[in-house]
Design a protein around this nucleic acid. Sequence first.
DNA 1: ATCCCTGGTGTACGCCGTACACCGATGCGC
DNA 2: GCGCATCGGTGTACGGCGTACACCAGGGAT
Lengths: 240, 240
Amino acid sequence: MAQRDGAGRAPLSRDRVLRAAVVLADRAGLEALSMRSLAQELGVVPMALYKHVANKEQLLDGMVDAVVAEIEPPADDADWRTVVRGCVLSARRALLRHPWAVRVIETRSSPTPGVLAHLDSVVGTFRAGGFSVDLTHHVMHALGSRVWGFTQEVFPSPPPPDPEARTAALRELSGRYPHIAEIVLRGGGHEDASVVGRGCDDQFEFEFALDLLLDGFERLRAQGWSSAARSAGESRAQGA
Amino acid sequence: MAQRDGAGRAPLSRDRVLRAAVVLADRAGLEALSMRSLAQELGVVPMALYKHVANKEQLLDGMVDAVVAEIEPPADDADWRTVVRGCVLSARRALLRHPWAVRVIETRSSPTPGVLAHLDSVVGTFRAGGFSVDLTHHVMHALGSRVWGFTQEVFPSPPPPDPEARTAALRELSGRYPHIAEIVLRGGGHEDASVVGRGCDDQFEFEFALDLLLDGFERLRAQGWSSAARSAGESRAQGA
DNA sequence: ATCCCTGGTGTACGCCGTACACCGATGCGC
DNA sequence: GCGCATCGGTGTACGGCGTACACCAGGGAT
C-alpha cells in the first residue's frame, strides 16, 4: 500500500505470496481472497502471482501447509496420550487462528505434504506408544473422521494402476512418511487387502469410530456423569 | 433437453428446481452446478430460477434439506443406542449418495431447518434413553465434532442482541425443536451461562470428544484389540 | 374491458481465474 | 564490451460466473 510505486517494491517470492494470502484470508475471509485482491495487496498486477504459484488451487495448497507448519511438533518425552493430546490441541489452535483453513483443507483433492508430515508424526507417536499398526490405522481414522477434518485417503483416490509407477510411489512414500507407509503396507488387518495400498474399508472405519464414541457415551450415562466435574474421561482430569 | 421448446415445458417450481439441482450435482459434481447450467438443464433462461430461489446460497440450502430429508426417521421401538446408531448410519448413507452434500453443509452459515429437525430427533432419542440434558448436549457435540460434519451452532453465531427478539426466537425454537431448545435453555451445565442461549464452551466440547476417543483408544490398546475380530467396542458385535 | 400479478425473458454489469504476448533488467559466454 | 537468453512483472483479452433490472405474455379478479 504505502510502498513507493515503481521500482522500490520488495521482490515477490512464493513465500511472500503465501504469507500475504494467509494474512488476507485471516483478515477479510476466504471469499475475499481472489488472485486480484491478493495482487493488489502486494502492490502488483494479478498475473504477476502466476510466476510464483501455478494457479489458485496451488496457492490454497501452499496456504494449508503454511497453517499446518504452525502446529507444534510433538514433544517426545511423554506418554503417547499426552503427546497425541498435545498435537491435536495444537492443531486445533492453529486452525482456530485461521478459521478458513479447515474449509480449504477439506476441498484439497489430495493431502498436502505438510498435512502428510503432520499425520505421519502422530502415527509415529501411537506406534511408539505400543499401538499395533492395525490399531493405529483405525485410531487415526477415528480421530480423522472428523475430529480433525482431515485424514481420508493418502493416495489421491486410486493408486496408479501401472504396477511400476505404484511401487515407485510406495518407495517414495516410505522414504518420506515411514509411519504412514507402514499402515498402507500393513500385512495383517483387512484380510481382503489383496492389492497392496488398496485403500481401506471406509464403512468399517466409520463404524469403528462411531462405536467407540457410543461405548463412551454409555459409560458416562451409566455412571451419571455430569459436566460440573469438568472431567471428560472417567480417569482424566483436565484444567480450565 | 428433449422437451419441446417453447410452450410445452412443464412449469418450474421451487421443488423442481431443487430436485434438478441435486441430480445435476450428483451427476456432474458441485463445481459444475451453476445457475446457468442448472437453468439449461431445465430448459429455461438463468434468470427464471430467481423466481423460485432467492439466490444461489438459498438454492444450496434447499439442496441440503432435500438430502437431509432422505435420512430415515428413527424407529422408536428400540434402545437409544440402536436408534442413534441407525440414525447416524442412515445419515451417512444419504451423504454418501450425494458426495457434494457434506461440503455444502459445512459452508452453510447457519443450519437449515431440515438439519435442525434431524438433530432434534437425535437429541430426543438420547433424552428418552435416560441421558441428562447436560450429557446429551456434550454427546451431541462429540458426535458432531466431526463424525457428521454438522452441529456447531444452532443460532447464527451470536443470538440477536435485542432481548425481545431473542425471546421470540427462543419461543419459536422450542415450538419447532423442543429437544434442542431444552439444551439451549438448560439450567445447569456451564455455570458461566449467565445469558440464556449464550452458546457454549467450544474448547470444552472439543476436549470432551477428544478425551472420550482417547479413553477408548487406551482401552483397546490395553486389551490387545485387533480388527480381525471386527468388533469395535469391547461389548459390541456388529454385522458386516 | 381493465388491471394487476405471476413467472419467464433479455440485456448488461462487475467480478472471477487465467492464457498469451510483451518488455525491462539482469547475468553470462564470448 | 556485446549479444542474448532468462526471469519477473505488465497489459490485454476471453469466457464464465452471480445477479440487478427492465420488460413482457398470459390469466384471473374486478
